[in-house]
Amino acid sequence: MFLRTYPHHDPIGISYLFGCVGKGQAAVIDPIHPPQHYLQQAAGLGVTIKYVIDTHLHADHRSTARDLAAACGAQYVLHQSATTSFTFHAVRDGSILELGNVTVQTWHTPGHTPEHLTLLVTDYTRAPEPWLAFTGHTLMVGDLGRTELASDPESGARALYHSAQRLKTLPDYVQIYPGAFSGSVCGRKLSGNPISTIGFERRHNQALSIDNEDAFVRLMLQDIPPRPANFERVRAHYSGLTVVS
Rank of each mutant, 00 (worst) to 15 (best):
T5C: 10
T5Q: 11
Y6V: 14
H8T: 13
H9T: 15
I14C: 06
S15V: 10
Y16H: 10
Y16A: 12
F18I: 09
C20Q: 10
V21I: 14
V21M: 09
V21H: 12
K23Y: 12
A26R: 07
I29L: 15
I29C: 11
P31V: 14
Q36D: 13
Q36L: 14
Y38C: 03
L39S: 05
Q41R: 15
I49S: 04
I49M: 04
K50G: 03
Y51G: 03
Y51P: 03
V52W: 03
V52N: 04
I53R: 05
D54E: 12
T55I: 06
L57W: 00
L57K: 01
A59H: 06
D60R: 00
D60T: 00
H61S: 00
R62F: 04
S63N: 01
A65Y: 01
R66E: 03
A69W: 01
A69L: 00
A70T: 06
A71Y: 00
Q75F: 03
Q75V: 04
Q75A: 05
Y76I: 01
V77M: 01
L78Y: 04
H79S: 02
A82P: 03
S85N: 13
S85R: 13
F88Y: 15
H89P: 02
A90Y: 02
G100Q: 09
G100Y: 12
V102T: 14
V104S: 09
Q105D: 06
T106G: 07
T113Q: 12
P114S: 13
P114W: 13
H116M: 12
T118D: 12
L120F: 12
L120T: 07
V121H: 07
T122D: 08
Y124Q: 09
T125G: 09
T125E: 14
W131T: 15
W131M: 11
A133N: 07
F134T: 09
T135E: 11
T135K: 13
G145N: 10
T147M: 09
P153G: 08
P153T: 13
E154Q: 15
S155I: 15
A159R: 14
Y161W: 13
Y161F: 15
Y161H: 11
Y161I: 08
H162N: 09
S163C: 10
S163M: 11
Q165E: 14
R166D: 07
L170P: 03
Q175S: 10
Q175R: 14
Q175N: 08
Y177R: 15
G183Y: 00
S184I: 01
C186P: 00
L190T: 06
G192R: 05
N193L: 08
E201A: 00
H204T: 09
Q206G: 02
L208S: 00
D211N: 11
D214N: 05
A215Y: 04
A215H: 07
F216I: 02
V217N: 02
L219P: 02
Q222G: 03
Q222S: 08
D223W: 05
I224P: 03
I224V: 15
I224D: 03
A229M: 05
E232V: 08
E232K: 13
A236T: 08
H237W: 13
L241G: 10
L241K: 13
